[in-house]
Structure formats: structure tokens, C-alpha cells
């Protein structure tokens, strides 16, 4: 039971980090970024390339993954979202195509076989019979530090308040002097950074392979739909519901059914409460 609790907490923190970048884009830009999983893909491979192939320090690899994710977010905003402004269907289709394109690029450069990421921090600690890999513990703690920092940033800074303002009332933000285009670009950059860093943690939790962008995208969509579109707090709570659901399913039913109950939960929430459990248009 303790092992389930610990595994659930570790996984849920990571899921919250994965989902929050997706939530940011939807709240501020009103766009379902279906290429969001590609940030994780690129983040994971960037870390692999710099830290395992070139031998740079692991934390430099994580930082470089974040920088590449940030650049990818800005490029996506400038080259796809801005030109297609207002055409949400076109943006969503384009981002999905971009994810498939990036997967092909990864296969071309690194091959299609899966890779094992060496732990960011090697070693395992046993607590009351529960095995806790330091790498997973680090990923969970780092996720929480990032999430708390993000929450404080959104609540207490001018830029964070401007992001909330754009997400709640674009005209109100504009007449307050907020440049929605800049805020949107910043949000895409932030989302790319968070997604890429989450990708390093996710790949070290599972494995690195070209199709790894799909599972995190489904997790992000699930958390956002169940939690309610646009709520950081809702995202955190539901990330824990989804994380624990998966761990409990793996432990007590069958590991193969791990994601099935998450899907069922999405359907139930969509039918019963389409606005999500905590849905309201805020960050």
C-alpha cells in the first residue's frame, strides 16, 4: 500500500507538470495544441543527445531541453498560430501534423528503436519496502518546485496577472494596456519549456522512443478535460486522480489496463460535467 502511495505521488507530480503546459496554452490562447506531446519528445531526445551522446552534464542537458522547447514554442506561435489567428481548427490540424513531422525527424536522426535514458540521479532508496528510484523522486520534486513557482508567477507578477487577464477577457486585457500577442508568445514559450523538461522526466520514467509524444498528449488532454479547461489548481488535483488511478490499476487489476480507466473517466466527465470538475475560465 505504501509503495502504491509513493508511486502514485511520484507519477502524479510528473503528470501535473505534463498537463500544466497544455492548460496554459488553452487558457490563454484558446488553442488545443495537439503538438504538445512533441515538446516532450524533443525534450527527451535533446537531453539524450547532449547528456548521453555528447557527455554534457545532466543538468545542462535538462536546461538545453528547456531552451530547445522554448524555441520550438516560439517558432510554433510565430509560424503557425499567428498566421492562422482565429482559425482554431486549422491551428489544431497544423499542430497535429507538426507533431507527426517532428516524430519523423527524430526517427531520421536517432532511428526508430527505443533508448534508455540513464537516471538523472542514479540510485534507489527503499522506504518500508517501497523502492524509490532517486531519478523519479528528483523528477517529482522538480515538478512540484516548477509547479509552485509557476503558480506564484501567475498569481503575483504583472506578466502572470496579464496571462490570467488575457485568458479571462481579451478586450478587458487590451484596454488595460496588455499586448495579447506578446502574452500569447510568452505562454507558448513557457509551455514549450515546461513540456520539454517534462519530456526529460517522462522519458527517464518510461523510455525514449519516437512515438512517446502520444501518451503524454492523452494524459494532458485527460487532465484538462477532467479538471476543467484553464484551471491550474484543477490540473494539479486531477493529475493526482489520474496518476493514482493508473498506479492502482497497475497494482490491483492489471498493468495492461493502466490507461483504460483514465479514458473511461474522460468519457464519464464529458457526459456528466462537460465543463470539468473544476472548470472555469481562469488560470
Amino acid at each position: 500500500m505504501l509503495q502504491v502511495l509513493i508511486q502514485g505521488l511520484l507519477l502524479s507530480g510528473l503528470y501535473a507538470l505534463i498537463a500544466v503546459g497544455f492548460t496554459l496554452i488553452f487558457s490563454v490562447g484558446r488553442v488545443l495544441n495537439l503538438a504538445y506531446g512533441a515538446y516532450l519528445l524533443i525534450g527527451g531526445y535533446t537531453y539524450f543527445y547532449f547528456s548521453q551522446q555528447l557527455g554534457l552534464p545532466k543538468f545542462a542537458g535538462v536546461a538545453l531541453a528547456g531552451i530547445i522547447g522554448c524555441a520550438l514554442g516560439i517558432l510554433k506561435f510565430q509560424l503557425i498560430v499567428r498566421p492562422l489567428k482565429g482559425n482554431h481548427v486549422a491551428i489544431e490540424i497544423s499542430t497535429l501534423i507538426l507533431a507527426v513531422f517532428l516524430q519523423s525527424v527524430v526517427i531520421f536522426v536517432f532511428g526508430d528503436s527505443s533508448k534508455i535514458l540513464l537516471p538523472i540521479i542514479p540510485g534507489v532508496e527503499r522506504v518500508a519496502g517501497a523502492a524509490i528510484p532517486f531519478s523519479n523522486l528528483f523528477a517529482a520534486i522538480a515538478s512540484w518546485v516548477i509547479l509552485i513557482s509557476l503558480w506564484l508567477f501567475v498569481r503575483s507578477t504583472h506578466m502572470g496577472r496579464a496571462m490570467q487577464a488575457v485568458s479571462m477577457d481579451a478586450k478587458g486585457a487590451a484596454i488595460s494596456g496588455v499586448d495579447a500577442t506578446k502574452i500569447n508568445m510568452f505562454t507558448w514559450a513557457l509551455s514549450g519549456t515546461l513540456g520539454a523538461i517534462a519530456g526529460v522526466f517522462f522519458a527517464s520514467y518510461t523510455q525514449l522512443y519516437p512515438g512517446m509524444w502520444v501518451a503524454p498528449l492523452i494524459i494532458a488532454v485527460a487532465v484538462v478535460i477532467v479538471g476543467g479547461i484553464g484551471s491550474i489548481i484543477g490540473t494539479l488535483i486531477v493529475a493526482h486522480i489520474v496518476g493514482f488511478l493508473e498506479i492502482l490499476t497497475s497494482a490491483y487489476i492489471a498493468p495492461e489496463l493502466r490507461g483504460v480507466f483514465t479514458m473511461l473517466l474522460i468519457i464519464v466527465i464529458l457526459v456528466w460535467r462537460p465543463s470539468g470538475l473544476f472548470g472555469r475560465e481562469e488560470l
Binding site: 496577472r161 490570467q164 487577464a165 479571462m168 477577457d169 478586450k171 478587458g172 486585457a173 484596454i175 472555469r280 475560465e281 481562469e282
Partner: peptide, 11 residues
Amino acid sequence: APERFNLFPYM
């Protein structure tokens, strides 16, 4: 100050 206020409701 617009007619519909355009405030940020959850702030």
C-alpha cells in the same frame, strides 16, 4: 471603462 465592464471575473 466599457459598458460591459470586461473585468476579469475570477481575479
